[in-house]
Every structure is written in C-alpha cells, then in structure tokens.
Nucleic acid binder design. Structure first.
Lengths: 171, 171
DNA sequence: GGACGATATTTGAAATGTCAAAGGTTTGGG
DNA sequence: CCCAAACCTTTGACATTTCAAATATCGTCC
C-alpha cells in the first residue's frame, strides 16, 4: 500500500484548503475589484477619446435610452446606483450639452423627469454600439461558456450580498 | 409591472434568449459592475460607520501594511490603481490623521516614501479583520466551490482584458 | 559644469462621489 | 382648514477621481 504517499498528499490538500478557505471570499473580492477597475478605466478612456463623454454620463443615458418616456431623478438614482445629489449634477451637465431635457410633470411639482433629447438618442446609440464592441474585444480570449457561467455565478454572489446588507435596505 | 398574461412573459423569455448569445459579454460586464458597486457601497458604509474611514484610505493602508518599509507614491499608485495626483491627496489626509508618515530618502530627493505609523498599523489591523468578516458574511450564501471557480475565471477575464487594452500599456 | 531627457511628485481644473441638511410639495389626519 | 409627516430634489461641505501641465530632481552626455 502507498499509504505514506497519499497521506502526504492529503495533508497538503488539507493545509492548502485551510489557507485558501479562510480568505477565499476576500481574494475573490480583490480580484473582482481590480478587474472591474481595469475594465472601467479602459471604457472611460475610450469614451473620452472617441466621444468626449464620461462613464457616469454614459450610464445615465443608457437608462434613459430604454425608457423613452423619461425617468424621475430618484428612479435614475436607484438604477444607476448613484446618490440623489449626484444625479442632479449629472443631469445638469447633460442638459447643458443638449443631450437631456428636464420636465416637471403637471400632477406633482416635486418631481423632475429627465428624458433624452433627439440629439441625446443619436449620440447614445453610437456610443452604445461602440461600447458593446469594446467589451467583446476585451473578453475575446474568454470561452463564451465561461462568460455565461460567470454571468450566472456572479448573479448568485449579487443575490447573497443583497441578502446580507447592514443598511435599512428592504425594498 | 402588471402580472397580466403569461403568454407575454414566455415571449419575452424567448426573445431574450435569442438576444443573449449576442450581448453576453455586455451583460456579464453590467452584472460585474453592479455587483462590485453593491459590495463597495456596503464596505464603504461600514468603514465609515464603524471606523470613520473611507474605502480608498483603507485600500492605500492595506498596501502599506504589507510593506512595513513603506512604498514610494508611484508604487502606491500602481498597486491601488489610483492616479498619481490622487495618491498625493490621499496620503496628505492620512498624514494629517497621524496614520501615515512621509519620508524623503537621502539618496533621491524626488522620491516620497509613505509608511504606516504605529497608530496606522493598529488602526488598519482592526479594520482588516472586520473587512474580511464582512466579505465572508456577504458571500455566505455562495458555495465555496463556486467562489473558487469565480476567482479562477475572473482571473481569465482580467488576463484577456489586459491583453486587449488600447493604451500604451506594456510593462 | 551645464544642458537635456528621464523620473517622481505636486498642482489645478473639472467631474464624480458620499452624506447630511434644507427646500418645496403633496397628502392625510384632526 | 391646518399642521405634521412623507416625499422628491437640491444644496453644501468634503473626499475621490481623472487628465494635463507644472515642478523638482537625477543622470548623462558633451
């Protein structure tokens, strides 16, 4: 019997498992964060160079693009995961550039609805096409089956995180 | 929205399924981004509430913690993926709080080396322990095998992205 | 030894980000 | 009707972020 050999292997696995098991979540987080930063920086650079736009502006316009009726600023804030005060400034600048229009509905004067202008729609749709291509290029070396798996499993992470938030978040 | 007719829902699933193959990378990116934002916001909130610190400060201190000799600001910039100018301000504020110390070595007066103070080390090690726990909690519902898989596969994504950057990045 | 290119950090302008507090508006009891 | 609670957005103080330009120092070549 090769009992002594397999005992060593088992020990290594155990030790390794003990080391990695401890901080596995931390390591995943650090890798997710650095990868996200890397991709964000690349997209930001290209948006700037090729379209003179910023990433937060692009994100905000993306939300408005699929809600042609426009969105309240509060709703925009939730969807872009950006604070209310920040949305105010973003919409202000986009309005100054003629890409977005602000309207206060008759029914409720507390509300401001933001909506893409015709110019905004044209501008965004060009950026969106390029944006999608950039992502395909950046992930070109990753097997599509893996991409799909990642999409699913990161969904599980997001779901777990959502269920363990400290704040008063139960909407 | 209204849960009116299941026929509509089925149609949506079919249509969505056809679209999925096309924009898989885009959808992965959007999910990565939103998940990362979610986790960041949670960590930020807890760092603020429990330690009065910010996330970038924590990140910077983490780098210094494992280099007890300290790091040049340029090296800090690379490791934290933060621009040079930004590091200057971060270190300034941390120094004002007595957590970090700046030293100019004798050999080269262009250089500034940042180093944790004793107070900084104590402060960071408390935050680090909590931080690791937060991540374990947030990801508690995810199978450790999946966490491990994600860690590996996101590594593949990062690698692919690194090989398809537009900038003059070849270090 | 003085000019020049390379290196390292700082500065400045503009945008983005958080949070808390303040402004208006609407709504719902009393 | 009126006031208080709830809602939506804006404002203000600060921190972080990027980029580009400016500073300062080093090393080298002539």
């Amino acid at each position: 019997m090769a009992e002594s050999e397999s005992a060593i292997v088992d020990l290594e696995i155990i030790v390794q498992g003990a080391q990695e098991g401890k901080k596995l979540e931390l390591r995943l987080w650090l890798r997710m964060l650095s990868t996200t930063k890397l991709i964000s920086q690349e997209i930001r650079r290209r948006l700037r160079n090729e379209f003179g736009a910023t990433l937060p502006q692009f994100d905000l316009m993306a939300q408005l693009y699929r809600e042609r009726e426009g969105l309240r600023l509060g709703e925009l804030s939730k969807r872009t995961m950006v604070t209310n005060g920040n949305v105010t400034g973003l919409v202000e600048r986009l309005e100054a550039d003629g890409l977005v229009q602000r309207v206060t509905p008759d029914g409720d004067r507390r509300v401001t609805v933001a909506k893409l202008t015709a110019k905004g729609e044209t501008s965004f749709s060009a950026m969106a096409a390029a944006h999608e291509g950039w992502l395909r290029d950046m992930m070109a070396d990753v097997d599509p089956a893996i991409v799909r798996e990642l999409w699913r499993d990161i969904g599980a992470v997001k779901s777990s995180v959502s269920n363990h938030l400290s704040g008063t978040d139960f909407d």
